[in-house]
């Protein structure tokens, strides 16, 4: 009938959804994969991993990836570089320090998270400047 429609946009919605997903992760609710990183088991949701990482996108989107519920990353990132990335995926906040940045950069490169790689390079560059 051509009546003017209205849309109510809840501007906090995406961060509220992410916060709830992080709470589900911390409580192990609906987590569907265990990542063995440096021997340390980390539970996560494949959907979040695939949404955030080109590496996981290529693994879990394939039919073979559907049945995977434990994934070890041999020769992959060390836990101290991977854990901050997993937290970033679920919080949008990437914790970096001069001591951890190289390990996070290596893990982000491995996980094909290009935008985070660039941010790590900017951080390391800034850390080197007097």
């Amino acid at each position: 009938d051509g009546a003017l429609g209205y849309v109510r946009e809840f501007t906090r919605h995406s961060s509220d959804v992410l916060g709830n997903l992080n709470e589900l992760r911390l409580r192990g609710i609906l987590t569907d994969v265990t990542l063995l990183v440096g021997g340390q088991p980390l539970r996560a949701h494949k959907a979040v991993l695939i949404a955030c990482s080109g590496f996981f996108y290529s693994i879990f989107r394939s039919r073979a990836g559907v049945g995977v519920d434990v994934l070890s990353l041999p020769g992959g990132p060390e836990a101290r570089g991977f854990a901050p990335l997993l937290d970033f995926m679920y919080t949008s906040r990437l914790r970096l320090s001069p001591a951890t940045a190289p390990a996070v950069l290596a893990a982000a490169t491995y996980l094909q998270m290009e935008h985070v790689v660039q941010a790590c390079h900017r951080f390391i560059q800034a850390s080197c400047e007097p």
């Binding site: 695939i50 949404a51 955030c52 990482s53 996108y57 094909q112 935008h115 985070v116």
Partner: peptide, 22 residues
Amino acid sequence: QEGLVATVKEAGRSIHEIPREE
């Protein structure tokens, strides 16, 4: 200082874009 955290806002894209179904 131990524990001091400076937050830098990154306005750009944060993660890859999943290609839209052709």
